[in-house]
């Protein structure tokens, strides 16, 4: 699969909302070189203040990376799960969780560490309902790097409110790379904490993204701007208040945030 696709020519088309240039939407970026061309001017992407590129509803997928599925598989046939999931396991990342790159995730008093999940978000360009896997691509705007943060947990029976719905737990952006310039067959990522490499890896999906998105669209409409997170690796680093985190997904770009403590700033 990798071989029949040439690497996209740089720069590639992306969609973003730089805070100081509110009229900008389509830009050119070189996602792996931290560069963007905004109104003809070349900038270092990490020097720009970015707003969230999209503001739809964000849905996450559990157990869709091979490592997460494999690690959890022995428990799937035991109570309370009883059987492996027969459909994609979804969760909602509500609006309070959304944070643009460069922001601060202020941990609540009852949270000591945050797990730095890294993933790809598929961003919808138009309403999609009951699409076939072949039709999905035409419904997408593109793909975005996402820090899908969570409080570590290994109990997946009840919905993940205290573990996934905290303020700032969805670090999204800087930009959405056009669907023609990124192919989500493998998640290649690196994570740094305080400038030191904390994780690097390649992750494959349990079900191909087009199949999963089609399966979700079988029972609900995904609207323009909605984002579906494709899954996080089983082993991810933990970050504590005071630390700075950087994520990179090959072909999508770099996202950064700092971890703070609730009460130090609002």
């Amino acid at each position: 699969m990798e071989n029949d696709r040439a690497a996209p020519r740089r720069p590639v088309r992306a969609y973003a909302r730089p805070v100081r240039r509110p009229l900008v939407w389509a830009i050119d970026v070189d996602p792996d070189e931290d560069r963007a061309w905004i109104d003809g001017e070349v900038v270092r992407a990490t020097d720009v203040v970015w707003d969230l590129p999209v503001r739809g509803t964000v849905y996450g997928l559990l157990l869709n990376t091979v490592s997460q599925w494999t690690a959890f598989q022995p428990k799937m046939t035991r109570p309370p799960y009883e059987a492996p999931p027969s459909h994609p396991v979804l969760y909602v990342k509500p609006p309070n969780t959304l944070l643009p790159t460069g922001g601060t995730v202020a941990l609540d008093p009852d949270v000591d560490v945050v797990a730095v999940g890294v993933t790809v978000g598929a961003v919808f360009a138009r309403p999609v309902f009951r699409a076939t896997p072949q039709m999905i691509d035409a419904g997408l705007l593109g793909y975005v790097i996402v820090g899908d943060l969570f409080v570590p947990h290994d109990d997946f029976f009840r919905p993940p409110f205290r573990t996934r719905a905290r303020d700032g737990f969805t670090v999204l952006g800087p930009w959405v790379v056009d669907r023609t310039a990124y192919f989500p067959d493998v998640l290649r990522y690196r994570i740094w904490i305080d400038g030191r490499e904390a994780a690097t890896g390649e992750e494959r999906w349990v079900r191909p993204p087009a199949d999963v998105l089609a399966s979700v669209s079988a029972f609900m409409t995904l609207a323009a701007g909605d984002v579906l997170l494709l899954g996080t690796p089983y082993t991810v680093p933990l970050a504590r208040p005071g630390q700075s985190v950087a994520l990179e997904v090959e072909g999508l770009g770099r996202s950064e945030f700092t971890v703070g403590r609730r009460g130090e700033e609002r």
Binding site: Y81, V89, L90, Y91, F157, P159, P160, M220
Partner: peptide
């Protein structure tokens, strides 16, 4: 019928259009 034991109640049972 669509309830499953992962993040239950799951979206397929509760989040149809």
């Amino acid at each position: 019928d669509d309830l499953e034991n992962y993040y239950r109640p799951n979206l397929r049972a509760k989040n149809r259009d």
